[in-house]
Design a protein around this nucleic acid. Structure first.
Lengths: 342, 342
DNA sequence: CTGAAAGCGCTTACAG
DNA sequence: CTGAAAGCGCTTACAG
């Protein structure tokens, strides 16, 4: 036997046809128990593995998913959003369980996803993860929809386009966390994070935040909302600008944990102590949150569940089954930065 | 045109043979400039993409690399080593530049890597990232070598087996950092991290650490070395045990930043202040290091360079070129935890 | 520089 | 339950 074993080699050794080998290995009910066992033994002995390319070419299905992760190409490109990274583990695991391979690509905003991944038969479907400017993003989504490419995405469900989205209830999560601060007696709130159509998730968090304030009879001061993308640097700058306005506040709601990191540094720089002078809360519960000092009160999104749902829903879509959007639960995680223990 | 366009569709429109289309699209010098241009235009018009499976099957090469990331399946499986995650960005980017796709799989220690990825023609080569017990790992490496599967790995070059490894000079990096502490006047050192054959990288760091101590005429007290795998939890427990020995020390060298995180929490729990009571240093410079409180003095490994080298070397191996091991540079990053500013 | 033809290793109707 | 045969969409000798 030179080179890799093929199904013909197995057929020869087993004294059956190549078709039967193929059937046996795919657990076709058409093959007798006895024949199957013999074939499986020989396959094992020869270290045989089905050729992925031949199988995919013939059956026109790759049993591969592509994960596209993209963010605004800011500053340090090695700093991928930690929240997405924690989803990566559960996505790969669920792919394994479902029998799919996972192709990963970062920052591919500029290519034609459909033709690169679907037309070339590299992947049967796409998982999209990305913060970043939603405006650019939406036109790409529309292309995918127009081509009929199966895909799921992490993010807020939007009315403007028919997609399968997995996300958390950002509005509700933000209310949980704002209400917690209100209970602790905080009176004037700043919000750091983009609040515009370009960032639907942050926008939803801002809206939830405002709703909670209104319910509690607290005025929303739009002067205390500062735009920032999802980086510590932008958040730092935004917070400094905010502080320079000299409008007093005793709590900052950050649109994400990464933003909270920048806010915290800015506050420290200006000699403000968290939580004594200012309470601070984030969103996501990235691994770093519990190690910050003070540790960060935040809203946890179940990233393991998120990854699993993304894969499962995509596989259903690929199989042509009807698929609905799904929300994952949010959970308030109380740590030191909110001042709960003060 | 129903369904996807094929090279035959293009050939028909261009009035040439399918062979010529294939050559033109692969930039064969055999095709005239004029013909190539015409073909490229039509291909673009039809949104044509070469079918990956057909191309790979025919040419017996997948232009895909597989990244296998594995760690001891400890506690929370979503907490992948942050250092590897920061390499992931540069690996995907370099793959893109080199024209390779990237298949990602976690925790696949139990399967036969060779047949799953190479025999099945899913990938032309393997990139291996993993801390964890080296003993299990080594037998897997030997299988790959025996099969002639191209692969590169992150880690210390070892004499026991002939592999292409990319790593940093752990011994040297550890010396840089220990010498820094010595210069600051620290006298008695603890080391937290496995120092055994199962963890060659941590072992090298421990050895470098000890060499620096000896050079400075400081006795190495093996009672102050505490084993811990690469998790904050293990490090926390190890540190508590260490403190319970009641042997005084004024500096802790952690085998990694993640370990330093656990050490710091344990010290805080016991009422010790870093760096006033005890200096603390880590290794890796994970993103979290600069946000810890106090921020962590550590030894940076250039993860971007590491990812790039892993991909480049693997591609050379696949092409059958001779490939040597490579070291990436380490750099001492001084922050607050060592007490440099005290 | 171009074309006709073989064949990569499977899966799956079709026929028995 | 099994086999003979076609064909997925390319790449690449071979011949001109």
């Amino acid at each position: 036997m030179k080179g890799k074993a093929t199904s013909f080699d197995i057929a020869y050794e087993a004294g059956v046809s190549q078709s039967t080998v193929s059937r046996a290995l795919r657990h076709s009910p058409l093959v007798s128990e006895e024949t199957r066992k013999k074939i499986q033994e020989i396959a094992k002995k020869l270290n045989y593995t089905v050729d992925k390319n031949a199988s995919s070419l013939r059956s026109q299905t790759s049993t591969t998913l592509a994960l596209l992760l993209f963010e605004d190409p800011t500053s340090d490109d090695s700093l991928v959003n930690p929240f997405f990274l924690s989803m990566l583990g559960s996505i790969t695991r669920e792919c394994g369980l479902m029998g799919y391979d996972l192709l990963v690509s970062f920052q591919e905003l500029n290519t034609d996803w459909h033709s690169v991944f679907k037309d070339s038969n590299k992947a049967d479907g796409l998982i999209l993860l990305g913060y970043g400017d939603y405006t650019d993003y939406e036109s790409k989504l529309r292309e995918l929809v127009d081509h009929g490419t199966p895909f799921v995405r992490w993010g807020a469900a939007t009315e403007s386009i028919e997609t399968t989205s997995i996300g958390c209830d950002n509005n509700h999560g933000s209310q949980q966390i704002t209400e917690h601060l209100i209970k602790l007696g905080r009176k004037s709130f700043a919000f750091v994070g983009n609040a515009g159509d370009g960032s639907p998730e942050f926008m939803a968090r801002y809206q939830g935040h405002c709703e909670s304030l209104k319910k509690a009879g607290i005025d929303v001061n739009t002067e205390l909302q500062a735009d920032a993308g999802n980086t510590a640097e932008e958040a730092y700058d935004a917070t400094i600008t905010l502080l320079d306005k000299n409008i007093p506040f005793d709590a900052v709601v950050a649109a994400s944990d990464v933003i909270a990191l920048g806010v915290l540094n800015a506050l420290k720089t200006r000699g403000l102590t968290v939580p004594d002078d200012v309470s601070l809360v984030g969103f996501d519960d990235i691994p770093m949150a519990s190690y910050m000092s003070p540790s960060l009160t935040t809203c946890r999104q179940d990233s393991a569940m998120a990854g699993q749902l993304l894969v499962d829903k995509l596989v259903e879509l690929i199989k042509g089954e009807p698929v609905s959007n799904a929300f994952i639960k949010t959970k308030l995680i109380v740590r030191e930065s909110c001042g709960a223990k003060a």
